[in-house]
Design a protein around this nucleic acid. Structure first.
Length: 409
RNA sequence: GUGGCCGUAGCUCAGCCUGGUAGAGCGCCUGGUUGUGGUCCAGGAGGUCGCGGGUUCGAACCCCGUCGGCCACCCCA
């Protein structure tokens, strides 16, 4: 073994890649139905965009960024998430008038130790609902992610929901939380002790400190009237939309730009430490952080790698409508002509290009997952081919002009 | 960054404890079927046992080192 994919990356090859194609199609189709237009941004950006946007002392910025200097001396970073880039692109385009609904799809990069459902390059699908402060926007975005998982047949998904309030609510809460953590400091882990002053909310997430966290004051108990009202409206909307959710009082998210509503999707049967397959939140402060006009927004990110791991194994459907088999070498041009004609008619057709025995060609047809085989041989002189249904083994002669309808039978 | 487990055929793994000629299943190739796959039967190909060093008459097996993979902590999609 000479070369391998770099640590934390992997290759996707057929036939497994078919599920990736499906995941992308379903996402883009759903986005279209909900009115989200595609946004494409570079995979690398100025490093400062992420340190400003995501937050200087978040885990992601502190130690997970792929940062490099280009030949012009610029500090660039492979994007660790999508939202900062999308917001930057909108500010660059002159800001948002009214509302803007965008979706995006592509690889993200974080330098971490790989484990199940966690890689250094991973594929993420995002939607962003920008310019709308009303709780209905939160509900729509949460619903979108939930429906996406349903359409991909991910079983038993739970929505975990919380509100972390606005900046003002959080600073009051923060002081109280620090006081509480100090009162039980001898029970805390080293990590928690290190974090409790610069990022106390993060301690709520710590598995090692779950005993202390269980009695900790929660963000939801410290919401302003407006934030509490917003949260209540979001919950109401979810109930009306028939989306099951659970309040998760200790759910906080690791990116600094979030406020108010935050949530995650957890498939309960997914056996992995990294069990959240998607998440999102409201990020009203982000436009200003990045130098734009104040603009309310909500968005979500779905982790495709994890979704495909959590998914029910779908049985493989035939991936070709027919395989054309050449039984008489002098008919080669007729056979390739037939292949070309059927492909042109929108059918999925393949054939062996070189000289192989009929037996080998049938084998190739089977391996390719073809539903039917069309044999081009002496019967061509009578204006037909031998057509075989590879699943049942039934076989008959079909006239050339009937082939298309026979394949679509 | 820290910890645990694992590297043997294309794939999944047994063999290692107790050193003595390299194994299984699946896959692949050929034939049974001179124009028929998938099923069945018969035969066959394929491995410097991750890499380097040490111990030994002899190392896949014991010891040291190194690289890689997986899982967990942490963090998040």
């Amino acid at each position: 073994m000479t070369y391998r994919a770099p640590k934390g990356t992997y290759d996707v090859l057929p036939p497994e890649s078919a599920t990736w194609v499906e995941a992308e199609r379903v996402f883009l189709d759903l986005a279209e139905r909900y009115g989200y237009g595609l946004v494409l941004t570079p995979v690398f950006e100025a490093t400062e965009l992420f340190s400003r946007g995501v937050g200087e002392d978040t885990e992601v910025v502190e130690k997970q960024m792929y940062t490099f200097t280009d030949k012009g001396g610029r500090s660039l970073t492979l994007r660790p998430e999508a939202t900062a880039s999308i917001v930057r692109s909108l500010i660059q385009a002159g800001g948002v008038v009214g509302t803007f609904k965008g979706c995006s799809w592509g690889p993200m990069f974080r330098y971490e130790r790989p484990q199940k459902g966690r890689n250094r390059q991973f594929l993420q699908a995002d939607i962003e609902y920008i310019g709308e402060a009303a709780p209905g926007a939160d509900v729509e975005v949460i619903e979108f992610g939930y429906r996406y998982l349903q359409e991909l047949r991910v079983p038993n998904v739970e929505v975990r929901l919380n509100s972390i309030g606005d900046a003002g609510d959080r600073s009051a809460y923060r002081t109280e939380l620090i006081a509480y953590l100090e009162s039980r400091r001898d029970e805390l882990s080293d990590d928690a002790l290190r974090r409790m002053y610069d990022n106390p909310l993060r301690v709520l997430d710590s598995k090692a400190d779950s005993a202390v966290v269980a009695d900790a004051p929660t963000p939801t108990e410290h919401l302003s009237d407006e934030a509490a009202e917003h949260f209540a409206a979001v919950r109401n909307g979810l109930e009306e939309a028939d989306i099951p959710y659970r309040i998760a009082p200790t759910l906080v998210r690791g990116l600094d730009y979030y406020n108010r509503t935050v949530w995650e999707y957890v498939p309960l049967d997914f056996d992995a430490a990294q069990s959240s397959v998607g998440g999102g939140g409201r990020y009203d402060p982000l436009f200003e952080r990045l130098g734009g006009k104040p603009t309310p927004a909500v968005g979500l990110a779905m982790g495709l790698d994890r979704i495909l791991l959590a998914r029910k194994q779908s049985e493989s459907l035939p991936s070709l409508d027919a395989f054309v088999i050449l039984a008489a070498p002098e008919r080669r041009a007729d056979a390739t002509g037939l292949v070309r004609r059927l492909r042109g008619a929108g059918l999925r057709i393949d054939a062996v290009t070189g000289d192989r025995s009929v037996k080998a060609q049938f084998k190739a047809a089977d391996r390719a997952g073809a539903a039917n085989a069309l044999v081009v041989g002496e019967e061509w002189d009578e204006g037909g081919v031998t057509a075989r249904d590879l699943a049942t083994g039934e076989q008959r002669t079909v006239a050339l002009e009937e082939i298309e309808t026979w394949l679509r039978r």
